[in-house]
Design a protein around this nucleic acid. Structure first.
Lengths: 386, 386
DNA sequence: CTGTTAGCGCGTTCAT
DNA sequence: ATGAACGCGCTAACAG
């Protein structure tokens, strides 16, 4: 039975030749030519069909709405019907199409994660924590790495926007100063939570470790071990993290009555070569430091290697404290004293904040800030007493 | 102007009361009650609207088809129109909705990656290689970690099915024997490429490193250093990888005329504690081995730690070779001799195979197998000569 | 309790 | 060169 696609007429329809291999019709009532709806051309790779609720409905001779309701465990549905649907779904190996679901509900049940890298185990642990909260709540996680490049980070934000993620947690690259690409999320009403590496000037929830406190305690530990000329291998000062650690270092010295020597504070970037160069510079000073607080473990490890190559005894002549507790730090000799961060907690907390915002009914949310404490792990690189 | 949603009539329409807060109409021609189409109830979190092609069309007073074509760089479109669309798209910060795109085209331009874990840098490097090929080809990568648990792995496959990924590359868990969950991909016509850790009995493309060859060369190296009682810390034998390495070990001994002692072959699992126990067991044997080939670096590193704690000199009394070249292996003392795998190449090759299958027109594809060579990196843990 | 329908955003014929 | 209509798979509102 042919129906006019314009007016719905069914009787006054005449065939009218064939166009591009398809039968063409003419509706006498509304004076309109039309052809029957065609299936979209499928690309060749679409070799097989994945089961849809329509397949289940056809198999059971019921409507797809009923199937949909049965699958969702809707209450007002006949028990037999529900069972039949569930069985058939299992039999046909039905998997809901998340693309369609997302489109229909205007949400993807996906949250985006942007990290600078995941070669070091640092961010992976955070991601695992994030997944541990997200998955039970019914959200998937899509991971992007910016590779420490602003350009890639911007591309990542675009991908996440295009994927219509319901929210984003992010840790920015060292070179990120401009925040336009993150403000896009805010303009689109997509909740954003920053963690670990944050940026000023973005009014969002944040999850941080107490870098100031950790640095303070690390330096205090060096002082307690008898160090008096304590140097600092600092990181890029556009990163809050690095700023805070520098401040903790400064305050610890001051509160304990030790002088601050500018020449003992070296700014570096966070890669291996510059860290090595900075360490070398410090250890070749005429009046060499007797303690070093490094902004992170890789820098501290490079320092250990340089010191060893120069025959400087650790910790007797030089005590070293790092930050982050990388796995390597426990294995290197001497073991590296460092501040452990609660990595999975960071991820968990960030996602908890995020889900709270995603599922909140409020239109204006007050950004939260979570601050997690570090733990000092004392190893041989600094243990002079006891 | 109200139009009957059934027959399209516009004149013979009468108002007919209000239902659930909405105006109801009556079409006299087709005797039909109806209400105006309503917007779907939006969840509260949908605070703002993300730009669609319809928004651009409205702003420019043209049809969305034209916008769609302009955006795709279709040829038969007026240059002015195209420019106007492009400008407006930029102005409104348009991002295509990948959910809608995927639904319409029945493909998501996403490929799934399943790995057992990504704490060690091993899989991350592979993933980066995979992204380096996938992204330029217009595909995104969604990463799942099975956490070495079969149950999680099955959940991952379901998520990827539901996300309608266009293809999957996977490395199975140590406990995966049953392959039903991977066969689902094949049944659905979703290309699958296995890498590194594969399973027998699945007729798919594979990317492997030549574990046999690597093990052979590692053990041969130990023999050349003068070892005669060489032990092997083996991994779970349901993993091809571990089987191959064991075989390489056995063949190297045989070809060089060395005896194989069963007591020197210890099966362990791939975690820290069991590796340590196995190492301890070997080094406490009455007739201790003078060389150890470990199935991977973490196991080798545990062996080094145990040996050092026992005062056994490395490499003089005990030479050690690992497998994988983990970052830690270069930093530990003594540096660990190991076999480096071309990690990013694995990821790249796997995705190249996969994209080939995704974009192929063939209905039946012949699975390919890529075998990549390892590289022996000699460090202090085994260097007795020169 | 179940069927019918609109609409989510997009690409795509087909018609003009 | 442009517009109108449809379908991808699903949910939810609505009509029985």
């Amino acid at each position: 039975m042919i129906k006019c696609i314009k007016c719905g007429e069914v009787d006054a329809i005449a065939k009218s030749g064939i166009v591009r291999g398809k039968q063409r019709y003419f509706c006498k009532r509304c004076d309109y030519y039309f052809t029957q709806p065609t299936l979209m051309t499928r690309p060749a790779h679409q070799r097989k069909h994945q089961t849809t609720i329509m397949d289940i409905a056809n198999a059971l001779q019921i409507s797809k709405s009923t199937v949909s309701r049965a699958l969702q465990g809707h209450s007002d549905i006949n028990d037999n019907t529900r069972q039949a649907v569930l069985n058939m779904a299992h039999e046909l190996d039905y998997q809901p199409n998340l693309l369609a679901l997302g489109l229909a509900k205007s949400r993807s049940f996906t949250i985006g994660v942007i990290v600078p890298e995941f070669i070091n185990s640092f961010f992976p642990y955070i991601i695992i924590g994030a997944q541990q909260v997200a998955n039970p709540a019914g959200y998937h996680v899509i991971i992007c790495q910016s590779n420490e490049q602003l350009e890639t980070e911007i591309a990542n934000t675009n991908v996440l926007m295009a994927s219509r993620v319901d929210g984003v947690i992010a840790s920015v690259t060292a070179e990120t100063k401009n925040l336009d690409h993150f403000q896009k999320f805010q303009r689109a009403g997509i909740p954003l939570v920053m963690f670990n590496r944050i940026c000023d000037g973005l009014d969002v929830s944040k999850v941080l470790v107490d870098d100031y406190d950790g640095a303070y305690r690390g330096v205090e530990h060096l002082i307690q071990q008898g160090c008096t000329r304590i140097a600092h291998l600092a990181g890029p000062q556009n990163l809050q993290v690095c700023k805070q650690r520098l401040q903790g270092y400064l305050d610890a010295l001051q509160h304990h009555g030790l002088p601050v020597y500018d020449e003992l504070i070296v700014n570096g970037h966070l890669n291996k070569d510059t860290a090595q160069a900075a360490a070398r510079h410090l250890l070749e000073l005429p009046d060499r430091p007797d303690g070093i607080f490094a902004v992170n473990d890789p820098a501290a490890i490079q320092t250990i290697l340089v010191a060893k190559s120069k025959g400087i005894r650790i910790p007797a002549e030089l005590a070293i404290v790092g930050f982050s507790n990388e796995p390597t730090s426990a294995l290197i000799e001497p073991g590296l004293t460092t501040l452990a961060q609660p990595l999975d907690e960071i991820g968990k907390t960030a996602v908890q904040f995020l889900l709270g915002e995603i599922e909140s009914d409020e239109l204006d949310l007050i950004p939260k800030t979570g601050i997690l404490k570090t733990q000092l792990i004392v190893r041989e690189s600094s243990r002079r007493l006891g």
